[in-house]
Design a protein around this nucleic acid. Sequence first.
DNA 1: GCGTCCCCTTACGGACGAGTAAGATAGCTC
DNA 2: GAGCTATCTTACTCGTCCGTAAGGGGACGC
Lengths: 206, 206
Amino acid sequence: MTAPSEAQPRGTRLPRIARRRQLLAAAQQVFVERGYHAAAMDEIAERAGVSKPVLYQHFPGKLELYLALLEQHSEALVEKQRAALQSTDDNWQRVVASFKAYFDFVSGEGGAFRLVFESDLRNLPAVREITEQTTLRCAELIGEVIRQDTSVSDEEAHLLSIGLVGMAETSARYWLSRGTIPKDAAEQLIARLAWRGISGWDLTRH
Amino acid sequence: MTAPSEAQPRGTRLPRIARRRQLLAAAQQVFVERGYHAAAMDEIAERAGVSKPVLYQHFPGKLELYLALLEQHSEALVEKQRAALQSTDDNWQRVVASFKAYFDFVSGEGGAFRLVFESDLRNLPAVREITEQTTLRCAELIGEVIRQDTSVSDEEAHLLSIGLVGMAETSARYWLSRGTIPKDAAEQLIARLAWRGISGWDLTRH
DNA sequence: GCGTCCCCTTACGGACGAGTAAGATAGCTC
DNA sequence: GAGCTATCTTACTCGTCCGTAAGGGGACGC
């Protein structure tokens, strides 16, 4: 935990756009560390080396500030997932890339995965909508691939995809907190588990 | 959403133990509906047909009330999981029973799974400890079975188990909210996915 | 039917934190 | 260097909700 990216000595004026970026960065730090409820606007402002009203000149309220971050990172995850699945035609490689996308997301983005996967504001419909849609959209991307190559029904493909997404989310989160297995190895291991599960689905009698 | 189990007409006296049970039930309703932060002690008391100080005669504070519920249901899930894995020696049946345990948990207990899986108080160390340990303990139970029948390392068995647990949690939660597939079918489908993934692990060259 | 105890009530204190009003100051233009 | 504007600050209001102090009323013994 170093001092804020406050190369500026508290009092420096900044053009609007730069200030906004800085405020978002400070807000993310605090929201990730403390969660929505325990995060105080005063602390966000302070960490940006600025006073509270400045925050309110850029964002109408605490909720909008939070939503801006949540949407940004939610979108980033879905985009990573889309890119992973489009990166190859080989389904095994697709699975590998897809899981790597989750492990990358959890490893990077300044801990933003906590906003998307562990939000403490999920009881607010607007937030629940975003977090659930993130999971559903990722699942839907995977579901399309499954439907192309198997004869399962749409509903079944949907549930299978959700299961795989849940596996990715959870294993990535707990892999990170434990930190004993190299990232590559963890990705490969979970990808194998998923690939064994889903590949050649139609070939076995259930 | 019916009236509280308030057969008593607001003013009835109750022996301590019965009152405590009733308070816990009311608290669970409110915590599940609103989450920890949006739940007001006033509403919990009101829903139990009682005034606030009565609540404080049974629980020292809001947090302790919440923890009592969280621990109870967390324990219930782990116990269900343990029972499922002990219920048979056949590993395929074990997988089926194990996933059924998750779907049962999510379907029952008055929505208590929201406390364990979607707590909005996870930023409090005491709560994070409980929710994470729930996942880890369930995973560990599964991990033991995996280690018995495969030659993977302890670390690998651990991560694989976490992946399977995540698959169970997530698919059960989203199955419930969608509600288009019969419970049996959903359990079987996900169990097949897991079983194909994990069974005969050593037989394939990775 | 009167005292006594336990359970319950109404009504308040106090902390915390979101959002705001009003005023100060830097730095640019001319 | 005087004036102007956009940026920033201090200091406050207001609402919410946890937790509590102090007092009412039913049931039972006598």
